[in-house]
Design a protein around this nucleic acid. Structure first.
Length: 506
RNA sequence: GGCGGCGUGGCCAAGUGGUAAGGCAAAGGUCUGCAAAACCUUGAUCACCGGUUCAAAUCCGGUCGCCGCCUCCA
């Protein structure tokens, strides 16, 4: 049984979806006016991990994630850059998709745009007015928080305790300072739609209510986002959706991820410490960023910095080394089918199964990825030990047992979204074998002026290492080290192991 | 002023009643031409005080410190 911390109740609850075996999940998407930063990146990684795990557990997940493509910030941005609103939103929507792809975040099933759901929003606002939850003033429509007695139930606050207007001026046309805009009348030059209240555009909160209800309906399972969305965004969504439908709950489980700080400071524009996802990905493998996210429970704060990234990178390399280490062992061995294993090997096989069980227990417990990683690293240690045992004293069942362990390790990592490129490589290798693409060969031949293709960089590196081995055999350390040093300058790292030479690109 | 979170070995981070997972770093060792990787060994009584309990990092009360939200924000 999966347990989930529900912001609404403040407790961990058993996760029972509305419909058995199916999960409807809505994640608040980006306002497309800028490149996303690592804080945004964390949020989407967190929900990607949750989604992958739910799918692994057999749930059919429908993931809806919006694009907010009408908003003050977008309009300002367009003016700053002297572009149209559409140009801005198109540009940053694509940038978002690129970043998500680079992060290896699975795409949502439905990605609705706010501007394509204006009629639904207008319908909802009309109904809210009709029910006395909203009122119109000068072409604006405000939601009356006093009309919804449960207002504040998500963020655990009541209207009296809040200091509205302390930091921001209150529109005096509101009946209550906490009332929020459902519809804003348009100023000249702003994007606007016709409505019963005149030309205008929707407020921020109404779009998520309208779109989540459109695609998932009342009472869907998971609504997620960063902790900063709890108030006012999600609080207002509840007020709108439950006020509109007269039903409760709007959402069964509210899940909110923690923040990312930069050097113990909140990341914010005013401090000027924004770090973009794309800048990190220039220097680090996306799995390293994912690793960093996995190392802390999703509800806790992450202090982001070079040290944290480097540490995540080292930890990731430990996983990598283990997987490659087993592969090397397997390449050396010819025996593929295992005769009866030793006692130790039987125990190991059993340990692998336990590892899977313990991994699931950790993940079932409110997606406790740090604990799950701990279990994975215990497996890594066992496997590493076994591989070095096998290098020294091979046993008949060795390769099969090692492979089984590696399969377990890779499988669990992939549930978390790590090393998924290994799958893709396998798949593409198969494809390549099937079609040596006649036309492609010809094109290449023409391009290079001869019928034989050029050797790949991989082949050339192997050649260099071959030469280096010859020097090493002659104990010509100077030449051997020179080759290693020069390759390292180019980012190719060399490791001499008992099983042979390994190289990888940094 | 209200609401919420946090304080675990040098750093990061799990653990929410039975005497502390894991990662990084450090030291010593094994292996090795060197380097790297890997393996072995070494370290915390859990901010502080008081209470409940046979038993608490874990529950309750208090103190101190840090942070977030109450405005747009993942």
């Amino acid at each position: 049984m999966i347990k989930v911390h529900n912001t609404l109740t403040g407790t961990k609850e058993n996760f029972t979806p509305r419909e058995e075996g199916k999960v409807g999940m809505y994640v608040c998407g980006p306002t497309v006016y800028n490149y996303i930063h690592v804080g945004n990146g964390r949020a989407y990684l967190v929900f990607d991990i949750i989604k992958r795990y739910l799918r692994y557990k057999g749930f059919k997940v429908t993931h809806v994630q919006n694009f907010t493509d009408v908003d003050d910030k977008i309009i300002n941005r367009a003016q700053e850059e002297n572009k149209t609103v559409a140009e801005i939103t198109r540009k940053y929507e694509q940038a978002f998709l690129d970043d998500m792809f680079a992060l290896n975040v699975l795409p949502p099933d439905i990605t609705p745009r706010a501007t394509e759901h204006i009629p639904q929003m207008i319908r909802m606002i009309e109904k809210l007015i009709e029910k006395g939850h909203a009122y119109q003033v000068d072409g604006n429509v405000f939601y009356s928080v006093r009309s919804f007695p449960e207002y504040g139930k998500l963020s655990k606050r009541n209207l009296e305790d809040m200091r509205a207007g302390e930091r921001v001026e209150v529109d005096e046309r509101k009946r209550d300072p906490m009332d929020f805009a459902l519809w804003k009348s348009a100023k000249p030059g702003e994007p606007a739609w016709d409505s019963p209240w005149g030309k205008g555009r929707p407020g921020w909160h109404i779009e998520c209510s309208a779109m989540s209800l459109e695609y998932l309906g009342m009472g869907f399972d998971i609504h997620g986002g960063g902790q900063d969305l709890i108030f006012p965004h999600h609080e207002n969504e509840i007020a709108q959706s439950e006020g509109y439908s007269g039903e409760s709950p709007f959402v069964r489980y509210w899940i909110h991820n923690g923040f990312v700080n930069i050097n113990e400071e909140k990341m914010s524009k005013s401090i000027g410490n924004i770090i973009l996802v794309r800048d990190i990905l220039e220097k680090y493998h996306p799995d390293v960023l994912r690793m960093l996210v996995l190392q802390t429970h999703y509800r806790n704060l992450i202090d982001f910095g070079v040290e944290a990234l480097e540490e995540a990178k080292k930890a990731y390399e430990r996983l990598e080394n283990c997987i490659f280490g087993v592969s090397e062992l397997l390449e050396k061995s010819t025996l593929k089918v295992a005769p009866a294993g030793t006692q130790r090997e039987m125990e190991l096989a059993e340990y692998y199964m336990e590892t899977e069980t313990r991994f699931e227990e950790a993940m079932d417990d409110d997606f406790n990825t740090p604990r799950a990683l701990g279990i994975i690293f215990e497996l890594v240690k066992e496997l590493n030990t076994y591989v070095s045992e096998q290098s020294a004293f091979p046993t008949p069942a060795g390769p099969a047992i090692a492979k089984l362990g590696q399969d377990t390790l890779v499988k669990l990592c992939q549930v978390l979204g790590l090393f998924t490129f290994l799958q893709e490589e396998e798949a593409s290798e198969l494809e390549e074998e099937q079609e040596p693409s006649e036309s492609g060969k010809i094109l290449q031949a023409i391009a290079h002026g001869h019928s034989r293709k050029l050797p790949s960089p991989e082949e050339l590196i192997d050649l260099l290492l071959d030469i280096r081995t010859k020097f090493r055999n002659r104990k010509d350390w100077e030449m051997a080290d020179y080759i290693r040093a020069r390759l390292e300058e180019m980012g190719v790292k060399i490791e001499d192991r008992r099983e042979g030479v390994r190289w990888k690109v940094e």
